[in-house]
Design a protein around this nucleic acid. Structure first.
Lengths: 217, 217, 217, 217
DNA sequence: TATGAATGAGACTTCATTCAT
DNA sequence: TATGAATGAAGTCTCATTCAT
């Protein structure tokens, strides 16, 4: 029963304007949704774990689905947002000082860090995405508008500098994303159960693999 | 409304010992589970689509969950099995006539073909795996016992022939599986909605990417 | 706790194709709706009175409102229908043999008889009509299409024969309906609680009153 | 959204001893009960419309039902009261200057006027009376004690003057009330939706109808 | 006095499962 | 073997009412 800290999961402004009960409900919901899945969780169970009356849930969240979306939406924003605002974004804007290798390393570390901090919410996102078409669409739209152009620019930048081969940009993006997600999920699955998993080495190897895979010629 | 052929989804021995009704129930369940998810499907709807009485379902499958497992278990077997028995396995055993590139190409084509043939069942597997710990464990065990040794042998074979760099075998397996799954999922997500997706080219590029990524030096 | 006979309330064909449980549910619902009103009745109470499980109600009636409509709709049909099909209709079609007085007498007796036989259902209709706009509209439409033309014809027939004054037909209809409903409701309210109510005499007096009220000159 | 004036609906003494909040709650309740019916209205909606906190309602009215009764009881008083206190009552006490026709005309106009002024409250009364036995009983008692003797006196006065036939007084009262209510309800139902409704003419015709109906011989 | 957050009973409804036929 | 009517537990959600502030 891991203690969930909302501060790792939701934007801090959001949390500050929540009150005690609302926070406890959200925490309970995250824990239970992550454990049993949305459809297999009951509002009565969430209420019990949050130590509130069942009716109280519905004061703060119009419906059970609304409660789920209150978890999913900030999370997918958090998945997308960093590329725009945080340190990582700065790395992208100071490309001249960086090699493509630095870029890959940074992106993998950053995403791994994020997923580990919000592991239960991440689990919910992955579990529920197949059933929540609207969230999926919102995610796709954000990717297309915010993320894709940024990454494209980076790829093209390094292609111009001759650090990357000249495959189509979209294919390169696909390959990079595939391999970033690959390390992240491997870390979650293997890392937690296998002693021999050396995370830093696996990151290094993955970076090297991608570098070689995309090297010119 | 694609007509589902169980022969694409389940081992033929399994199908042969089923009777008419049982087969119709399974087909209906697959279609409905894939469309709405397990929890949002009702046994009455399955019975209607299968043209049997609701009670009949429970003659063949003890519970609704049992019906789900009757779909999941043979499917993960099918995902693992080919490496042992079908044409693909033969390719693995005649490695001396093949290059690593052929191996990669064959494995990607083969898995893509499989997923496309059993797309609804595959959808169910992906959706329900997070909630079915026992199935997941069974899958892990099968992987460890059957698949992993085979692939290890192949990797080591090509390493000995100098076609692959000498990263740890497990890391190489992880990278290959990541990228195979990556093409498959991309094909399902992008391929179905985007005109510009050229599957053969993407396979070629992925093979080349892995080849370069794993090339010695 | 009056024993309710559905045969007095619903068309017999309808009843014959009902089974035991459905009939018991309807009877219980009529009794409880009449006593407490639709919104103040719970499906659990109806189930208990009908000696069925609560879920059984929803096998026969999609929703609680559907259960109400299953009572209301045949009833308003029954209120309208007789003017088309039963003995009363024949009276209307053999006007040449009848006086206007006979007509009035027949209509009052007939409506009183009907309301007494279906008193609880009638109570539900009167109670719920203000809240069920769709039923109200259906009632208005039936009145306009089926009843109004028939009564108009009768009124005009007697006007031509010089038995009724030449007020506008609609006004005459309004006055007649008002006074028929007046006796009926008086009979229900006063008749049940007051010994001195002599129904036959009150009918006679009402007929005489209407006759005089509408007499030429 | 008609502005409701409590002064049209409740006795002025009652209103004067109310404070601001209580009055606003009552006004809001009347509007909402009339629109949606008692059971479909929520105290939270009433509180919102009255611009008070939900808890404030329960400071002035013990329960939601108490709030309903606070509307119903003064209203039925108002329906009965005028016969005792207002101008209309005076008309009754100066019968020698009036004909029976004047009496009928005055009573119809007066009741129509009243119902139109308090149309929402009237709607609530009609909708809820079937479910409020105590209010109904109170109404019956008031009718018997206050109204019935007055009307009886009038009827007998006109019978003595030979303007009315010698039917039993109660029957005459019943017929008059029936027809007064008949015009009022017709006016509400037909008058609001039909252009051709000429209220003054309909009143005249109704008066004439009753006059003829009750004329001696 | 006034508030409104919190409550929890109870409403309607769904559906996997049973069992008499 | 097959049926499908019946069940009743469990689910989501509403709302009148209370009470600490």
């Amino acid at each position: 029963m891991l203690a969930i800290k909302l501060s790792n999961l939701l934007p801090s402004e959001t949390i500050e304007e929540m009150n005690e009960k609302e926070r406890k409900i959200l925490e309970a919901a995250i824990e239970i949704f992550a454990e049993k899945g949305f459809f297999n969780s009951s509002t009565s169970e969430i209420a019990k774990k949050a130590s509130v009356a069942e009716g109280t849930i519905f004061r703060y969240f119009k419906t059970k689905k609304d409660l789920l979306l209150s978890i999913l939406k900030p999370t997918i924003l958090k998945v997308i947002a960093p590329f725009e605002i945080d340190k990582f974004a700065k790395a992208v804007f100071h490309l001249e000082h960086k090699t493509f290798e630095d870029f890959l390393h940074a992106i993998i570390k950053n995403r791994l860090e994020m997923v580990k901090h919000m592991s239960p919410v991440f689990k919910i996102v992955v579990q529920e995405l197949p059933f929540q078409e609207d969230v999926r669409e919102q995610f796709k739209a954000l990717f297309k508008e915010k993320l894709h152009p940024k990454i494209s620019a980076v790829i093209e930048h390094f292609q111009e500098k001759g650090q990357i081969c000249d495959m189509p940009t979209n294919t390169i993006i696909r390959l990079i994303i595939t391999n970033v997600i690959g390390v992240v999920i491997s870390s979650l699955i293997i890392g937690n159960s296998t002693a021999s998993w050396n995370e830093e080495e696996e990151i290094q190897r993955t970076v090297k693999f991608i570098m070689n895979g995309l090297s010119p010629q």
